[in-house]
Simulated assay, not measured.
Amino acid sequence: MGERKKIFLFGVLSISTSVLVWLFGHWGKPVMALPPPADIPEEILRTEIIIDARSPVDGKPLNAAEYAQLQEQLQVSPPPKLSAEVRQTIYLIRLRRALLQIFPFLDI
């Protein structure tokens, strides 16, 4: 009978200690399931009309009219192609970089 009583008391003590540790562990902490109050909900952001943009060419800020005009210009006349000499130089630089990764002692 004494053995059963010890097991019962140990169980009660374990459960009560676990509950107390859990309660005091979360004491005074803010709820983390909610977003911060300053955060704008995604539903509102989805319906927002974007009036500012950045140029895909140089990254400068543009308004909506300038952005539409730039997009038209890019579709009508594509950006100029590089000369054959510049393309050859870029190819050689990339080849050199790849060779230096394989053979680092060839630093020339």
Rank of each mutant, 00 (worst) to 15 (best):
R46F: 01
L20A: 14
K29Y: 07
V19G: 06
K5D: 10
T17F: 12
R94Q: 13
S83H: 09
D107E: 11
R96S: 11
L34D: 12
A65D: 13
A38W: 15
R96C: 04
Q101S: 11
A98Y: 06
G25Y: 07
P61F: 00
T17Q: 06
G2H: 12
G59M: 02
A33S: 13
V86L: 14
P61K: 00
D107T: 02
N63A: 04
I102W: 13
I15D: 01
R4D: 09
L82H: 03
L82C: 00
Y67L: 15
L45T: 03
A84R: 11
A65L: 15
V21Y: 08
Y91S: 15
P41R: 09
I49L: 12
T17K: 05
S14V: 00
P104E: 09
E66Q: 15
P35F: 01
G25E: 05
I40Q: 09
P56A: 05
L20T: 02
I15M: 03
Y91R: 14
P56G: 02
V57D: 10
A33I: 04
P37D: 11
I90T: 05
P79L: 15
R94N: 14
W22F: 12
L23I: 06
F103K: 12
I7N: 07
A33H: 05
E48W: 06
V21E: 05
R87G: 00
E43Q: 07
Q71S: 08
K6H: 11
E3F: 10
P37A: 11
E43V: 00
E43A: 14
P79D: 06
L100W: 07
A64E: 12
L23Y: 07
R87S: 12
L74V: 02
W22E: 09
D39T: 14
E85I: 00
D58Q: 03
Q75D: 11
I15Y: 00
P104K: 05
L106D: 07
A98M: 11
K60N: 12
F103S: 08
D39N: 10
R54L: 11
P37Y: 04
S18F: 10
G11V: 00
P80L: 02
L100C: 05
I7S: 06
R54M: 07
I51G: 06
A38F: 10
L20W: 06
P37G: 04
R97C: 04
I51D: 07
A38N: 08
S18E: 06
L100T: 03
L70P: 01
G28I: 01
L45H: 03
Q75N: 15
E85N: 05
L70T: 01
L74R: 08
S16R: 00
P35I: 01
R97N: 14
R4T: 02
K6W: 05
E85W: 00
Q101M: 10
F103L: 13
L34R: 07
P61M: 02
L74K: 03
E66M: 10
A65W: 06
I15W: 00
F24C: 10
I44E: 15
L100R: 12
K5L: 13
P30E: 12
